[in-house]
Each structure stands twice: as C-alpha cells, then as structure tokens.
C-alpha cells in the first residue's frame, strides 16, 4: 500500500504553525517513513499533483487568494485539518474585524506611520493580479467543511505529531493535558 499523502498550506497566518510542524525534530524522519508530502511549503511543491489524504491548513482567510487556495485544498484532500488559532478563529489577523475595511486600507496605504510620507500620490493597490481584500478575516470552517481542529498558537509539535500519527495509523489521538494547555 502506498504511503498516505499530506499537503499543507499557510493562508493568513505567520508560518508559526509550520515552524511547529518542523518542531517535531528528529521525528520528521519517522514522518517521512509514514507519509509522503505533496503540495506544501515543507517541500516547496507549488501545485497538487495527486489527490491527497490529509490537508493541513494554517491561517484563516483575509483575501480572495486564501479563499481559492482553501477551496483547492478541500477539493484535493480527503481530510482537512484547521491547524492553530488563525485557521480556527481568525487569530491575530482577525483583530481588524471590528474596523471597517475602508479604514484598514487607509491605515495601511495612506495614513500609517510607515507610509504617510511616502505615498504622495495616494495610490491604493488595485492591480488585477493582486488578491482582493475580504471585508473581514474568516476562519476556515466558515468557507469549507473542516474535519478536525487542532488548537494552539502555535499548536504544540506533539499535538501535531499525535494527530497525524493517529490519522495515519488509525489509532486513538493521545491528548494529554501537556499538549493542549496554552499557558
């Protein structure tokens, strides 16, 4: 039997969850024995080349590209996991959710201390190639069906390891207090 295929992506996140994936240390060698990676920043494969068994999503959706990516993952992965606070709740990027989008754009491109003096022509990025900004940051499960949620900021490496190992081996997910406590 071929090895289960895993894909990962970071949407509106900080890559911290991916750092935590790498934080499984030398167990990454075991992981490679257990699974094969497809589209993922871990191996730098940019497009899906086959149907995957497990998709792991870091980050929520703040723009149209995130949405397309997420939908692409849902289509190409049998099981989809929201990994970390931003994928599950929107996280830090969602702090803008209480602020009208117009004010966010003004702050980012016109009035913010790092741009106020250098955007003399008051240019707002509007090229067709640039992703469109969403009115607020959405958690992944509001856009596609998510099968599992692994909390944390970032989730502990052991939690990620335990979850992936349980899915691949069909065992029960070990959830000792140490791997889900956040402070």
């Amino acid at each position: 039997m071929s090895k289960p295929v895993v894909a990962t992506a970071s949407l509106a996140g900080c890559f911290g969850c991916h750092m935590s994936i790498l934080d499984i240390d030398e167990r990454i060698l075991d992981l490679i024995e257990l699974v094969e990676f497809n589209k993922s920043p871990v191996d730098d494969i940019k497009t899906f080349t086959k149907q995957c068994d497990i998709g792991i999503i870091e980050g929520g959706c703040c723009n149209s590209e995130n949405v397309h990516n997420l939908k692409d993952f849902r289509k190409n992965c049998n099981i989809l996991i929201s990994l970390g606070e931003c994928a599950i709740m929107g996280g830090l990027p969602a702090m803008r959710n209480g602020i009208p989008i117009k004010e966010c754009i003004e702050e980012a491109y016109l009035d913010g201390p790092t741009v106020a003096d250098c955007n003399e022509k008051k240019i707002l990025p509007n090229d067709d190639e640039i992703p469109m900004i969403l009115d607020r940051v959405y958690p992944c499960h509001e856009i596609v069906k998510i099968d599992y949620f692994l909390p944390g900021c970032p989730p502990r490496a052991d939690l990620i390891w335990n979850a992936v190992a349980a899915l691949v081996t069909g065992g029960e997910l070990a959830l000792p207090y140490e791997v889900v406590k956040f402070d």
Partner: peptide, 25 residues
C-alpha cells in the same frame, strides 16, 4: 452536510470599490 454562509462577491465588494477595481471572481 455542509453549507457555508460565505459569499466571496459580497465580501470583496467594499474593498474593490474603495481601491477602484472590478472584482475578479
């Protein structure tokens, strides 16, 4: 089994209008 409430066109309408671009859905 799953129906989202998310509407891409509605969620990008305001930002596109403000920066002056046609939504490219």
């Amino acid at each position: 089994p799953y129906v989202p409430t998310f509407d891409l066109a509605a969620s990008v309408a305001d930002s596109c209008e403000y920066v002056g671009r046609e939504p490219n859905l």
